[in-house]
């Protein structure tokens, strides 16, 4: 399959890329790993007139610890992230697709694409990370909770580009990510990201986020509230996980209806919470 025609350019800096986006007036797309955009273009579901290839822009591929947080460059690939020891995010990155896709796909592209079935968004939401975007008017930091606005839509402006992703180090938290799909390399039917800080046998803090349970990644507020302050026990976890799907209205698709997805959310939530609490 061949994409529609487009003009191609390869800017040398973030400023140049943002300038090129602004100049194209909505008819251009940034190209990072290309593993969401090129498949869409081959199916002609997208046909931008210009591609701005940012994959060689220097300085966007580092992963560094900066005090209480990690700074992850927009061009870090899933392979890099999966090996960097960045807690939940590394665990989640290792579950994405297959080795070849992980070698090309980037965190910036994954977040900007805004697909609720993508894995990294829920992890970032659970940890209350944020996205640093640069646009023609300068730079701003967008909390993950405000970033994902609808199916394939984000808070990024038309000429804004993700430069880096900030993730709290969450030292002292345990993590779990449980993903259910039907084929080896496939997207999640449903997945659940969990982080728990246990103090004196009690769940002092609980974070749960859901992949593919709605048009954006979602926090499972009811389940979090049920477990916060409760004992870090198998019973308390099971009771809380039963509320994982509360308030969600997942769309039915070819693989699953809404009731099945809600059931999966509860089952996967229990497993993710157990992993996070270190209960075998």
């Amino acid at each position: 399959m061949i994409t529609a025609e487009f003009e191609y350019e390869r800017p040398g800096s973030v400023a140049e890329a943002v300038g090129a986006l602004a100049a194209a007036d909505g008819d251009a797309k940034l190209l990072a790993g290309g593993h969401s955009l090129i498949p869409l273009m081959k199916l002609r579901l997208a046909a931008p007139g210009r591609l701005i290839d940012i994959s060689r822009v220097p300085g966007l591929s580092a992963i560094e610890r900066d005090g209480e947080r990690w700074r992850i460059g927009a061009l870090c690939t899933h392979t890099q992230l999966s090996r960097a020891g960045v807690g939940l995010l590394s665990e989640v990155a290792a579950t994405i697709a297959d080795p070849q896709v992980r070698n090309r796909g980037t965190i910036g592209g994954s977040l900007a694409h805004g697909d609720p079935a993508s894995d990294l968004p829920a992890a970032l939401l659970a940890l209350e990370g944020s996205i640093v975007a640069q646009g023609p008017g300068g730079e701003r930091t967008i909390p993950a909770a405000d970033f994902f606005s609808d199916y394939l839509e984000t808070a990024l402006g038309p000429a804004e580009m993700i430069r880096e992703v900030l993730v709290p180090a969450a030292d002292g938290y345990g993590f779990g990510y449980q993903k259910f799909n039907r084929r080896a390399e496939d997207w999640a039917l449903v997945a659940v990201a969990a982080a728990i800080r246990v103090q004196d046998g009690t769940c002092a803090d609980v974070r749960i986020a859901l992949t593919n349970m709605g048009p954006t990644p979602l926090r499972a507020g009811a389940a979090e509230a049920a477990l916060r302050g409760a004992p870090a026990s198998a019973e308390a976890i099971r009771a809380a996980a039963g509320q994982a799907a509360e308030g969600t209205d997942p769309p039915a698709d070819l693989d699953a209806d809404a009731a099945y997805k809600r059931h999966l959310a509860a089952v996967l939530c229990e497993r993710a919470l157990r992993a996070a609490a270190g209960i075998a």
Partner: peptide, 18 residues
């Protein structure tokens, strides 16, 4: 699948220009 700078990649999802 081919190797690009030592990494396995799917060459149907990469532009030659990249």
């Amino acid at each position: 699948t081919v190797h690009l700078d030592g990494l396995a990649v799917k060459s149907c999802t990469i532009l030659a220009a990249q």
